[in-house]
Computed example of a mutant assay.
Amino acid sequence: MTDFAARRTMMVDTQVRPSDVTKFPIIDAMLTVQREDFVPSGQREAAYMGENLDLGAGRVLLDPRTLAKMLDALDVAQDELVLDVGVAYGYSAAVIAHMAEAVVALESDEAMVGEAQDALMSAGIDNVITQAGALHEGAAEHGPYDVVIVQGGVAHVPDALLAQLKDGGRIACVFMDGALGEVRIGYKLDGRLTWRRSFNAGAPVLQGFERHDAFQL
């Protein structure tokens, strides 16, 4: 029988801590949440790999290092509301739920929404709202949000999503340019967003987040 607890500890010790992620809430959440319960049953053995886990249809579960470093840069506080975009089977939302007051977990795939709800319930996590809907449209009815995090690549961030971020809020995205990508953190102040580069990472660009080139007549 696989010792997933040992794998979880190894994930944190070899993928998360060496990446300069030392905040206790992140370490504690990643040691607590059973990642193998938030992937398709046939991929449980691969749940702790140090790379993106392919979920099919252009979707991935971000590798532990990338998620941990995004959360480290966002510095989520216990009184904050977080919009988690593209949660797939709910792992990221489960981790963030340990740090935030509440999480709105947005997923476009109806089957994944149901699986995420079941996994979160089984884990005893009760401060996550799972929501089905187009990822690029966000979930305005529950906002505005202190923090927004996108669980996949983007070439462009839709205005509808940025509008749901509170003034003083932060957003984290993996910006892709071809095969190369970098995580940037956006800070909203006085209605304006300023992006800062954080670290290199990669992920497939999510539907609705493709680059929109200007039409030429």
Rank of each mutant, 00 (worst) to 15 (best):
A97S: 14
A155P: 02
F199R: 02
L81T: 14
V33R: 09
Q34K: 15
V113H: 00
L31D: 05
D109Y: 09
D213V: 09
G168Y: 04
G152D: 00
D63T: 01
M70K: 02
A111Q: 13
Y89K: 04
R170N: 10
L162V: 10
A93H: 05
A102F: 07
R65N: 05
Y91N: 08
A155R: 11
Q207F: 09
D126S: 13
D37I: 01
G138F: 03
H136E: 15
D126E: 13
A5Y: 07
V174A: 11
E141A: 14
V33I: 15
D159Q: 13
E45D: 15
R44D: 03
G124C: 13
G58T: 08
G186L: 02
W195V: 10
N127C: 12
G152H: 03
L217V: 10
I125G: 11
L62V: 08
R44Y: 06
V16G: 06
T14S: 14
R35C: 10
D72C: 03
S198G: 04
V174G: 00
A140H: 06
A201H: 03
F38D: 01
E80G: 05
C173M: 08
H212L: 12
L120D: 06
L81G: 03
K188R: 11
M70Q: 15
E110F: 03
V113S: 04
V147F: 02
Q131V: 13
D84T: 04
D54Y: 09
N52H: 09
D84Y: 00
A97F: 07
A123I: 10
G133S: 05
G191P: 10
D109M: 05
V76C: 04
L74Y: 09
G186M: 06
A163S: 14
D72H: 13
M49Y: 10
G178R: 06
A214S: 06
Y145Q: 01
G208W: 09
R211E: 15
L31T: 07
T32E: 10
E101C: 04
V157W: 05
L106Q: 02
V128S: 08
G86D: 06
A88F: 01
Y89I: 06
K23V: 08
R7N: 12
G58K: 02
A46M: 15
V85H: 03
A201E: 02
V157N: 08
A119F: 10
A68W: 02
L31H: 08
T14M: 12
A119T: 08
F175S: 02
A77T: 08
G138Q: 09
Q216R: 14
D190R: 11
L106S: 01
D63F: 00
R184P: 00
